[in-house]
Design a protein around this nucleic acid. Structure first.
Lengths: 196, 196
DNA sequence: CGCTGAAGTCAACGAGTGTTGGCCTACAAT
DNA sequence: ATTGTAGGCCAACACTCGTTGACTTCAGCG
């Protein structure tokens, strides 16, 4: 947090350290098992500081998670390649640097925590669905809103299923496949859900 | 548990009550949030009894979960229909009566618990992969073991993704779709992973 | 210097957890 | 009826958690 005129404060570094440690812990342990004490220890700070800066564990989680799918502009992508482009995009996002794995952090927490669940629902409704609506539906007709929502849901089911089996459950065959193989084999699935 | 000669004991009913309550709680709350006290309360029993019967929470979980996919015999199913049959099978399993939702219970717990994760890996390796191996690969050739494993992984990613978005995250469009629609739209995906 | 307010430390509280051991109860066999 | 034993309950332990309030340290400024 900066001053009102933008001058940095001494506490900025601490705040960032807490947020970074929180993101790593939440992503690897989930909301419940990520303890304030562990996060504070990672940030080399007293647990009380976390409360001072963020008020409560729930508010720290809300501040740490930033569910931005960062969907690229798909309007310039050839329609036939939409599926593979989307799969490649998500694979790259998940394999990104630590502290940026908001989606995995949300996914792991959403299994038990209701706030994380709601956040997940909102993320997909507000970010994925509009993009799919812009893409347009099947061959000629304009897809109705219900049809768009269904497509978004199906796309989410495959992409989140991929994140689940690869990064959370770590099913060996899914972990073993490299990026290109996954794009090659899962891409057509997404493509069909988009323009099938 | 019956006596050595099969004679039922007085404790059998209690044991079953604990297991039933445990399955419901583990499935709806996950391993961490499902407390021994809550399970005991549901079974109208003292928490200490749970320990007496099962020794520990971890052993109770191990006893409660029964990850049997109950995959049907696919050898008599026409190849073209394999995808839809599999999707329909899993949808029916998840919508079954409470106390039988081992897969959801495992899935919810696997987000944070490592034992549940390992159990999940073993379940798919030992039940799904052999069935797919029996089905055989693409057009003519015999699929190698690596190829079969990859197919099983991809099938798992879509089916578990469906379970995740429909029953755990409860994304509205996925929840709204009825059984037949899902079979119709997800079936071809599984079909392609199986025989693509 | 001294003063002020922010930044950080420390110890503790209260609630909830899995787990344990002692005690009571009821049934079956003698 | 007495006794042995399995089934059940109660209270407590040891621990971890999020959270709180009082205390100390430090930077900046007159």
């Amino acid at each position: 947090m900066a001053d009102i005129d933008g001058r940095p404060r001494r506490s900025d570094a601490t705040r960032r350290a807490i947020l970074l440690a929180a993101r790593v812990r939440f992503a690897s342990d989930g909301y419940d098992r990520a303890t304030i004490r562990a996060i504070a220890a990672d940030a080399r700070i007293d647990p009380a500081m976390v409360m001072r800066y963020f008020g409560s564990k729930a508010r720290l989680f809300a501040a740490a998670v930033d569910p931005d799918l960062r969907l690229p502009d798909l309007s310039s992508v050839p329609r036939r390649r939409l599926g593979k482009v989307l799969v490649a995009h998500f694979l790259d996002r998940w394999e990104g640097d630590p502290g940026d794995d908001s989606l995995l952090m949300l996914l792991r927490s959403a299994a038990t925590d209701d706030v994380a669940r709601e956040r997940m629902r909102h993320t997909f409704a507000s970010q994925l669905t509009p993009v799919l609506a812009a893409i347009g539906g099947g061959s000629d007709e304009v897809a109705g809103p219900d049809e768009v929502a269904e497509r978004a849901g199906l796309v989410a089911s495959q992409l989140l299923g991929l994140a689940l089996t690869r990064h959370i459950l770590r099913l060996p065959p899914v972990v073993a496949m490299d990026r290109d193989s996954l794009v090659e084999r899962v891409g057509p699935t997404i493509q069909r859900y988009l323009t099938g």
